[in-house]
Amino acid sequence: MSSRDDILGRVRAGLQRNASNATIARDEMLAALTNCSQGPKPGIDAEPKALLERFRLKSELQSSTVDIVAHESDAPAAVARYLAAMNLPKSAVAQPALAALDWAGAGLTVEARGARDADLVGITGCFCAVAETGTLMMCSSPDTPAAVSLLPETHVAIVRASRILPYMEDAWALARKELGTLPRAVNFISGPSRTGDIEQTIVLGAHGPYRVHLVIVAD
């Protein structure tokens, strides 16, 4: 007997599985998968301005820094300002999805591609953002490779205010609507990488970025 059959056989025996209870259980399973019912959620003011404010506040609590610009075309200059203020290099890798922005015009040398170990700054967009916790939702694709938000020591993300949603549940609904199936990697990112493994003292920059800067485009 294969291990699979052995394991499932013992699970079925434990549950006293038979044809009639299997039918009922299968119907319940399909109902659960169709209904996608939601649990209790904390109350959040879903008015756009309040959402933006909550997202900013929660992001800052996660040790991200936040800047707000009026238009997407203002983003490269905002990124350049941040890098200069932090004394960080002016060269960066950006997700190919952001290739069209005028990086050179802001004085930055940006290569649109997947990330390499030597990259010090990674610039990404995001699929959407979650105000409840101050979280970015990143969906991987050829245009939005996952490692750009992971390998560099500094991660700058451009977030459109119109894509800030109240809850993670809203992000799933949006993904189902716009993407159909889930991409290979959905990464929810809430601030820089951190560890508390030595004496429960929180240190930023464990394996991923030391710092996360969010440029919110108000549009």
């Binding site: 929660k58 996660q62 591609r113 997947g114 990330a115 409840e132 916790t133 979280t135 991987s140 694709s141 050829p142 490779p145 996952a146 490692a147 199936t181 889930l182 991409p183 290979r184 990697a185 959905v186 990464n187 929810f188 990112i189 809430s190 601030g191 820089p192 990488s193 951190r194 508390g196 991923g208």
Partner: peptide, 24 residues
Amino acid sequence: ATGQSISNYFSILTGVKKPEEHDG
């Protein structure tokens, strides 16, 4: 677990890298 409202990274991984993808 740690008293965080959410962990820094929460990844939902589905399937394998597609040929045109950079990583995974």
